[in-house]
């Protein structure tokens, strides 16, 4: 026999590994555009910013609100010991979100659990949509 089948010995597992790799690279294409990843949602009252930041204590995350932006700053600590594999990465990061609407700075709240932070930015009164009630006056048809 000339052909060596030995590399197929673990074939099912190899296939699974390949699929895992594909899943990982798929994920890699999805992120790494900016770090940390964020989601932004809004309703009439607030903006909601979600920050995915595993390994960082919410108390250590530095959120700074300036006139026109929200600055997210922090550091992912490196672990102690001899690294046999290192994929997670560590070090400091910063991301700036531009806010194009005035925010009520005093009422900004932030909370977090399990590596995901939530920041609620209440919209300033001046930009909240306001319903204008039309009080109907007795109208008169215009005679032409």
């Amino acid at each position: 026999m000339v052909i060596d089948f030995s590399s197929f010995h673990d074939f099912p597992r190899e296939v699974e590994k390949l699929l895992d790799d594909v899943a990982r690279f798929h994920d890699a294409g999805y992120r790494h555009s900016a770090y940390p990843e964020i989601n932004i949602a809004e309703d009439d009252q607030n903006y909601y910013v979600e920050i995915r930041i595993p390994g960082v204590d919410p108390k250590e995350l530095d959120l700074t609100l300036t006139d026109k932006s929200l600055v997210i700053r922090g550091e992912r600590p490196a672990a102690e010991g001899r690294y046999l594999r290192n994929e997670r990465g560590s070090g400091s990061f910063q991301r700036i979100l531009s806010l194009n609407v005035p925010v009520d700075r005093d009422k900004v709240r932030a909370s977090g659990a399990d590596g995901i932070m939530q920041v609620v930015l209440p919209k300033a009164d001046s930009v909240r949509p306001r319903k204008i009630t039309i009080t109907a006056q007795d109208s008169k048809a215009i005679e032409v």
Binding site: D20, D27, P54, A79, E80, G81, Y83, R85, E87, R88
Partner: peptide, 20 residues
């Protein structure tokens, strides 16, 4: 597939996984 670190320390090994 969550990113992982494997670390060796005196008392054993640690596997760290990001699962936010």
């Amino acid at each position: 597939v969550p990113a992982s670190d494997i670390l060796e320390r005196e008392e054993g090994f640690h596997i760290l996984l990001d699962v936010p």
